[in-house]
Design a binder for these strands. Structure first.
Length: 654
RNA sequence: GGGCCCGUAGCUCAGCCAGGAUAGAGCGCCGGCCUCCUAAGCCGGAUGUCGGGGGUUCAAAUCCCCCCGGGCCCGCCA
């Protein structure tokens, strides 16, 4: 059996071999173009639903119909051509399916030669010119701690980063700190009323200022409603009762915040109620800060404190950021000016609702542009307003400049924005705007990696109302749960290890769910580690690792008796191990984590079957023992690399 | 009103893009397994109108249309 190169994919190799062989037969018999035939066969070949039907299967009726070859002849031809392939052990036909059974002695040798050759690089593809990618993620407003919604963003973005790193791309991670805008102005307003307080000891700054932010925002809302109640006449009874209901909810929210920071809430209540127009004050802070007036630098000051807290949380999650970009710095940069100038010169420039805007109607008439910019066919995109009537810019306008900065600073081929699905429209506007201004390459290579919302059972989260479960809280509860489990088992556990298990459980919970599905996080459920497969993966790896340690990580490759590969569960395990490089390349193509997660669980399940069913180290048949050790090594490599891509901590013991 | 996404076992989810052979995991439930490589494990058992209805097809969880239910978006907010 020939050796495969270091970045080869044994599963893909075997599949191609079969496709090649059967396609040649068909092409020769029908004098058709070989490549075209291969294309078709490749899309038809499948894995049978059950192992007893073999490893690959060809649905003869479909091939027969597509190529116009009689069914009987198709079946016979396929079987005869496949007979010549050494790697094929036998072929049969059931229900017009041509089922292919591989020679596991040979397949096994092929797979383990790959794994042995590649070692810890198994699964890593080779690229002549690796891509340069920027991943912008999290970018939560610097006004409250990360809640589990931003947690989902962090985990997904971290997965993308690790995946790209694993396959050898150059990647840069960026966090866009939105310090310009209404939200930070709310916080800064409360912050200044309270005379710029420092967080009490043992209070993380993001948690503390998050409460001040929520209190300020709730109180302003309350004073607005009270004003409306006063103004409303008695003849508007339905409206009155609706306002009263809203008010009651806000008061309840406020009393929740007050439990945590009573003095601050009282003071805010007193001062804000006294204000004639508190919202005006907030707007004033926003405008002046955006104008970079140095007297308003306290906005940046308090934002930085919150960012410190967020960075600490990310550290606990083992999620990293290479560059922190401040929106106010984007304003300072010349790029925003460049964007505005280009906009004015653009044929798409116009006025919408009386203010400067980019009109997309003409662009959207071209279906081709929609396809190139990945904009859904039926999606109507309204004009993008570039400036307020006072001449200040809007978020998306600044985001055009920021996108250019990301491309330029890293000389990126591709920029990925990990942003919740709710921003799908503004992200489409962003791409259209880039295109309209002539930044075509950037427009086509800007990817909105979207994911669905995270909710709590029966309710959604809100930063403005301090209704959220923070990543810090959840991690801490999970870690203490881990410690309890370990204690029950009589095992010593360090804080650090408990955290590693906890965050891996958290990450796996998120990554095994498709990003396109709404995620409901039930904290009680998340704490039930039994229901979580993160620790299961870690545990399975530990089992394999502890066996390998006992043989000093040495597998006697030359003594392996490959003929023993036909026995289950070793057989299926080898089959699954062969797929890892294929799974990685599919993951790279789709950027979806759940397929990899499912695959790793399968490998772990099979290995646990083997582990329980038979002794490995004490196997008396030397050739079989070494085969099982090779399997153990393969499982360890696959689990380790897989967990690394998913961002789970790889532990040596637990 | 228009658009995007989701609906698969009691619960959490794979499978859908490239249609095929008895629809898969995990959790939970019931019953077993530690003088033996870490029992966060393993073995056995029960569990489904693939949201509903049409259509295309030899064949539909998968493709097309309609409907129902849930989420999100349609701002001189971000």
């Amino acid at each position: 059996m020939g050796k495969l190169g270091i970045c080869e994919n044994p599963y893909g190799y075997v599949k191609d071999l079969i496709v090649e062989t059967t396609s040649s037969y068909i092409a020769e018999n029908l004098t058709k173009n070989l490549d075209e035939v291969k294309e078709v066969v490749k899309s038809f070949i499948e894995e049978p639903p059950r192992r007893e039907f073999g490893d690959f299967s060809l649905p003869a009726p479909r091939l027969s119909r597509v190529f116009g070859l009689p069914l009987k002849q198709t079946i016979e031809g396929l079987i005869n051509s496949l007979k010549k392939v050494a790697l094929v052990d036998r072929i049969d036909e059931v229900n017009n399916y041509v089922n292919i059974y591989l020679n596991y002695s040979m397949l096994s040798e092929l797979v383990f030669n790959s794994i042995r050759e590649a070692g810890l690089n198994y699964g890593r593809p080779c690229f002549k010119k690796p891509k340069r990618v920027v991943v912008e993620y999290i970018s939560a407003n610097p006004v409250h701690p990360l809640h589990i919604g931003s947690g989902r963003n962090a985990v997904l973005g971290d997965f993308l980063y690790r995946l790209f790193k694993f396959v050898g791309y150059d990647v840069e991670r960026r966090y866009y700190v939105n310090d310009v805008g209404l939200q930070t102005a709310f916080l800064a307003f409360g912050y200044s009323i309270l005379n710029k307080p420092k967080p009490p000891i043992n209070f993380k700054p993001d948690h503390y200022y998050g409460l001040i932010y929520a209190a300020t925002s709730i109180i302003i809302e309350i004073s607005k409603i009270r004003k409306k109640l006063k103004e409303a006449g008695m003849d508007e009874l339905p409206k009155l009762s609706e306002l009263q209901r809203d008010l009651d909810i806000l008061l309840a929210d406020l009393s929740r915040v007050k439990e945590r920071i009573p003095k601050e809430v009282d003071k805010l209540m007193e001062e804000i109620t006294r204000e004639e127009n508190p919202e005006g004050k907030v707007n004033e802070i926003m405008r002046n800060y955006e104008r970079l007036d140095p007297n308003y630098n306290f906005v940046r000051e308090v934002s930085e404190e919150v960012v410190k807290g967020i960075a600490e949380t990310l550290d606990k999650l083992n999620v990293g950021i290479d560059v922190w970009d401040w929106e106010s710095d984007v304003i300072r940069s010349g790029v925003l000016k460049e964007v505005l100038e280009k906009a004015k010169a653009s044929p798409y420039y116009g006025y919408y609702k009386g203010v400067p805007a980019l009109m997309f109607r003409d662009l959207l008439n071209d279906e081709n542009i929609k396809t190139r910019l990945k904009i859904p066919k039926a999606l109507e995109v309204p004009p993008l307003i570039l400036m307020r009537s006072d001449g200040s810019t809007l978020y998306t306008t600044r985001d055009i400049a920021y996108t250019l900065i990301k491309f330029r600073n890293f000389n990126a081929d591709e920029v990925i924005n990990v942003i919740a699905v709710e921003q799908i429209l503004s992200q489409a506007q962003l791409r259209l705007a880039l295109y309209a201004l002539g930044y075509v390459r950037e427009a086509e290579n800007l990817i909105h990696y979207s994911y669905e919302m995270v909710n709590l059972p029966g309710m959604s989260m809100s930063g403005r109302r301090a209704k959220y479960v923070t990543v810090d809280e959840l991690l801490e509860s999970m870690a203490s749960k881990v410690k309890n489990v370990m204690k029950d088992r009589g095992v010593e556990v360090t804080e650090e290890q408990a955290l590693k298990i906890a965050r891996s459980a958290f990450k796996f919970m998120i990554l095994s769910t498709s990003p396109s599905k709404t995620l409901v996080v039930d904290v009680g459920r998340a704490l039930d580690l039994k229901q979580n497969s993160g620790p299961y993966m870690q545990y399975t790896y530990v089992r394999a690792k502890s066996i390998l340690d006992k043989v000093d990580n040495h597998v006697d490759w030359n003594s392996i008796d490959y003929s023993k590969s036909v026995k289950e569960p070793v057989k299926t395990l080898i089959w699954e191990l062969s797929k890892f490089p294929e799974v990685i390349s599919k993951t790279l193509e789709s950027l979806q984590p759940e397929g990899l997660a499912t695959y790793l669980i399968k490998v772990a399940d099979l290995y646990n079957n083997l582990y329980d069913a038979e002794p490995i180290l004490k196997e008396v048949d030397k050739g079989y023992r070494e085969l099982k050790l090779a399997v153990t090594y393969g499982v360890a490599v696959v689990l380790k690399n897989g967990m690394e891509v998913l961002g789970l901590d790889v532990l040596d013991r637990m």
